[in-house]
Design a protein around this nucleic acid. Sequence first.
DNA 1: TTGAAAGCGCTACCAA
DNA 2: TTGGTAGCGCTTTCAA
Lengths: 356, 356
Amino acid sequence: MRPTMTDVARAANASLKTVSRVVNREQGVSPHTAARVEEAIRSLGFQRNDLARALRRGQRSRTVGLVIEDVSNPFYSAIARGVEDEVSRHGLLVIAGSSDEDPGRERKMLQLLCERRVDGLLVVPAGDDHRYLLPELALGTPIVFIDRPPRRIEADVILLDNVGGARRATRHLIAHGHRRIALVGDALRIFTAAQRLRGYRQALRAAGIPLDEALVRLDCHGAAAAELAVRGLLGLPEPPTALFTCNNRITTGALHAVSDLARPPALVGFDDLELAPVLSPPVSVVSYDSVELGRQSARLLCARLAGVDCPPRRIVLATTLVERGSGETMPWADGASGPKRPDLRAQRPVPEVVCR
Amino acid sequence: MRPTMTDVARAANASLKTVSRVVNREQGVSPHTAARVEEAIRSLGFQRNDLARALRRGQRSRTVGLVIEDVSNPFYSAIARGVEDEVSRHGLLVIAGSSDEDPGRERKMLQLLCERRVDGLLVVPAGDDHRYLLPELALGTPIVFIDRPPRRIEADVILLDNVGGARRATRHLIAHGHRRIALVGDALRIFTAAQRLRGYRQALRAAGIPLDEALVRLDCHGAAAAELAVRGLLGLPEPPTALFTCNNRITTGALHAVSDLARPPALVGFDDLELAPVLSPPVSVVSYDSVELGRQSARLLCARLAGVDCPPRRIVLATTLVERGSGETMPWADGASGPKRPDLRAQRPVPEVVCR
DNA sequence: TTGAAAGCGCTACCAA
DNA sequence: TTGGTAGCGCTTTCAA
């Protein structure tokens, strides 16, 4: 069995309270007694039970819950890292879980986290009604929403400048002569998807380009769906000359769809990709610091935990357009035969003899 | 204040025990009483305190601790996802933390997790001596090591076939006519780095190619260091004609280093990259299922939690070579001028007028 | 079917 | 400087 303070007290021939004092480095223990207790702790391998401690002190579990769509998506795992960096400075650990964009799972995860008495919650919300969190908020659990605002409740939220980023990306493509610019995006119930569509429309309107519904492909969840959508766009009688892809997975899918094209359309994606600079052409993106997104969210949460009590805050982080090449090309003249993107495999000698 | 069972009992005019029975869906409560209690639970917004419950039941916190190098590295976050998928089926949550390859941080994290009484631990170990975990193991906390074996203790571990994968990668490059194959790897104290070097050496030896120390670049931690190392290799009087890059970050760095070369060396990387197929040329890699790596580790942990008591297991997962193009090119004949990798930006018209 | 009392491992309060 | 005792919110045991 695992030794308790009582065991240590017995072994050290001291009282429970004295052991507690030593463990918690409180004043008022004679060096001699302290040494005896320390020795007992060492020999028994005692480790304080934080569950019991928290219960007694009326504390929570000294953890924060983080609910994101998918811990294995680089965008979200970067957030997780930012959160960890920030909260670990306060001795808090992070319980992270994936909602898979399912409001039911999200709610269940949040419920589990509340039952474990997390000190605070960080959520990239998937649901469309978060009123069920009101009692928890009222009980003093701070909740900070990340990347998307909560629905039907007021709470702290850290967002990206989605509209601005999308508008800039689209305007950038227009500036390079494109008029048939497709948007490939996720379902509109997702806040960021809707906002990015808004920015796209604003840029078109500002340039006097009518919106062509055929060029707007929504509900692309994941790379595979996006790849299909882009193939569909390219098969149109009048295909787009440029693509605006609304998140990292969609950009990835689009790149798969255009990778074997002799003349790929121009492309700007929302979210940066680690390999964007080494693709050919290098991929231009709307970028921002996603670790910082997590860090700021956690910072706000920690401020709330420390008692900062102001009305719900709404922080918007800037996005920047990173020009790398894929978004800075003009449309091909119709029917003109332009230079092809070469197949390197064909260019380089391939051996005829393969050993073993 | 947060309502407790006592509050519910008072509100429902029932005893504490009766409330407990209702909350835990135990038998022996009359429907009428149960309804009254349910109503009180709803109206007060009662939520059972899992901390107190676990304490009383002598349970742990119903969480597993996961210590990895960096939650934001796709390799590790994929593991985290696999772990989550598996343990969530048992009602367990995941506390994940980053060690940053620092044995001190690793130890501290593990200590924190033990104090919070996690049910089990999953660790990608960074340290070189894990004997400090022996007491915890003896107390019945199952620990499964992932990707690298523990040092100086016996415990469950799930590994990849590093030697086999590296050998196959190197042999593959040899088969395509390369004899000057560089290895870019991490510090040898990291198990996987050492094993992959071993596989590389085995393949060279089998082909009768003497090892050229100048072509072995170790201690490359992170993409930036790898990029530098590759630039160094390419600046050699007799540069390598092929690269074997030992992990995902190193491959990324190498790709940065060769991205602007007219004639990039052949390349095979260990770890797959999401964008590998759309790079030019597409990148050949030693691949495996990293979500599965996490899932299997968690499965073993859960088996231990369920009481499976056999000697420590060592499971090795297979790796496969995925040929995509970058590893299937012959070396350039010395001094011959081969076809260049074209710059797409130059090929395509760039607009002269940019609006606003 | 219902409830009183003890106690999980710890800390807080007060007394010696 | 030291220690007894109560109690955090819950479950368990046993009695009514």
